[in-house]
Every structure is written in structure tokens, then in C-alpha cells.
């Protein structure tokens, strides 16, 4: 059974639909990647899953319908959305940002549970430990992305929705981030729905790929299908 299953999902901002009947799956502890050009509807897809915009169709998470739920309730089920632009709390410290990730997590929230969550996040992202007391707004782009991922981890999610984590970062930083994301996916047994324009690096992580064009899925399959199709490869991977 899939962890997340979308069927016939449409979404609109009030001026006509932006997504048209999307069907898509994320396997338990699997990684599904959505590729598409700027404006294809990738961000909108993640927002629709979380109930941040009006949508129709079905969203099933862990076997239960969640398409009528408000955003905080979706989050409380164990879906951690790392939004476009990272969505940190700029005036709060790194530590406070992380603490907020755990503020309505499922499972224990006592001092010891929180302390061990912090420890795990700082193991993945030692840089965040050094920046503990610093205001999030003053962190570098890479550190902010780490903070956003760390905050997601603090909720012990079953599914993470990641919106272009490579955006605006230097290639070395992107490589480091993806290495950590791979570890997180393996060690924490967490499913990932990853949205990217940077196809090359995202494909390495994917076990299922969806190509988006103007709000529609134009191709779905394992990464090797995309690599094997010369026309698609040229458009999406550029070689």
C-alpha cells in the first residue's frame, strides 16, 4: 500500500485550475520525484496535499482520506512540508525553529524525547548546532535549508514534502544536502515527495519519477525509463 496516494487531484488559486487531475503515489519510505519547468505546478501540488489551497479529488495518506483536512491537522498526521523559500521563522533562533518542529508532533513531547530529537538533528546537521543561538534570518541559504529539513525531522514525520531544496545553492552545498537527505530517507524510514527543477541530482534519489507540464503528468515511471528515453532525457536532463 502507498503511503501517499493522489487520485484525480485538481487545484486552483481562484482564477482557473492550475493542476488537472493529478494521480501520483509515494511508497512507504519511498522517494517520488516530480520534475517540471518553472510554473509547471510543482509547488501547487505540495500546497494542495497540505490543504493550503482549494483542491478537488482524493488525497489518501496512510490509508485515510485527508483531502478535507486543514493544514495543521495534516501536519499533525506526520506530513512535514518544507516549503518553497524554506519557510523558516526568521526572527527566532535556530534552536527555537527546531523546537517548533516538535511542538505538535505525534508521540512523546517531554524534555527527554525533545532532547534526543535535537541530538539526532544535530548529528545530521552539525552546522546547526554551531548556529544554535543565531537568528534564523541571518543564516546562509544552505544553513536555512538545513534548518528547514531539521525542523521537519523534529516532528518525526512519516512523509516529507520537499520543495526545490537545491534552489539558489552552490553545487557543493546541494551535494551535501542530498547526501544527508538520502541518509534520512534510509535511517528514519521516512517517505519523500520531492519536487525539483534540478533533475540530474534528484533522479539519483528517486524510485519513482513524474514529469509535469502545465499542471499535468506527462510521464510516470522509474528513473531508468526517463534515462532510457532519449527525447525526454534531452529535455529534462540536458544530455
Amino acid at each position: 500500500m502507498s503511503l501517499l496516494a493522489l487520485a484525480g487531484l485538481s487545484a486552483h488559486y481562484g482564477c482557473g485550475p492550475v493542476l488537472h487531475g493529478i494521480s501520483l503515489d509515494v511508497a512507504a519510505a519511498g522517494v517520488s520525484v516530480v520534475l517540471g519547468a518553472n510554473g509547471a505546478g510543482k509547488t501547487t501540488l505540495l500546497r494542495a496535499v497540505c490543504g493550503m489551497i482549494a483542491r478537488e479529488g482524493t488525497v489518501e495518506f496512510d490509508g485515510a482520506r485527508i483531502d478535507r483536512m486543514a493544514t495543521p491537522d495534516v501536519a499533525r498526521l506526520g506530513i512535514a512540508h518544507v516549503p518553497e523559500g524554506r519557510g523558516t521563522f526568521p526572527n527566532l533562533s535556530t534552536e527555537e525553529n527546531l523546537r517548533l518542529g516538535a511542538c505538535s508532533r505525534r508521540g512523546p513531547r517531554d524534555r527527554r524525547a525533545i532532547a534526543s530529537l535535537f541530538e539526532r538533528v544535530y548529528q545530521y546537521f552539525p552546522k546547526l548546532a554551531q548556529r544554535r543561538r543565531q537568528q534564523a534570518g541571518t543564516l546562509s541559504g544552505g544553513e536555512q535549508q538545513m534548518l528547514a529539513l531539521g525542523r521537519a525531522l523534529m516532528s518525526s514525520p512519516k512523509l516529507m514534502l520537499l520543495d526545490e531544496p537545491s534552489f539558489g545553492l552552490a553545487p557543493l552545498v546541494v551535494e551535501e544536502l542530498y547526501r544527508i537527505m538520502r541518509d534520512i530517507n534510509a535511517d528514519e524510514h521516512v517517505g519523500i515527495l520531492l519536487v525539483e527543477q534540478n533533475a540530474a541530482i534528484a533522479l539519483d534519489l528517486a524510485d519513482q519519477v513524474y514529469l509535469f507540464e502545465t499542471g499535468r503528468v506527462v510521464m510516470a515511471g522509474p528513473p531508468k525509463d526517463l534515462r532510457g528515453d532519449e527525447a525526454l532525457r534531452r529535455v529534462y536532463l540536458g544530455y
Binding site: 495543521p72 523558516t88 526568521p90
Partner: peptide, 23 residues
């Protein structure tokens, strides 16, 4: 924690919802 949550809501309401805060 409640005080922190209130500060979070003031700082970024949208992200507050994403961490499960009923704004």
C-alpha cells in the same frame, strides 16, 4: 512552549500551520 508558539505565529503564520499550529 505556548509563548514560543505565539511568537512563531507572529513571525510566520503560514509556516506555523505547517508545523501543526492552529493559528
Amino acid at each position: 512552549t505556548l509563548g514560543l508558539v505565539l511568537r512563531a505565529v507572529a513571525d510566520n503564520a503560514e509556516s506555523s500551520r505547517l508545523v501543526g499550529i492552529r493559528v
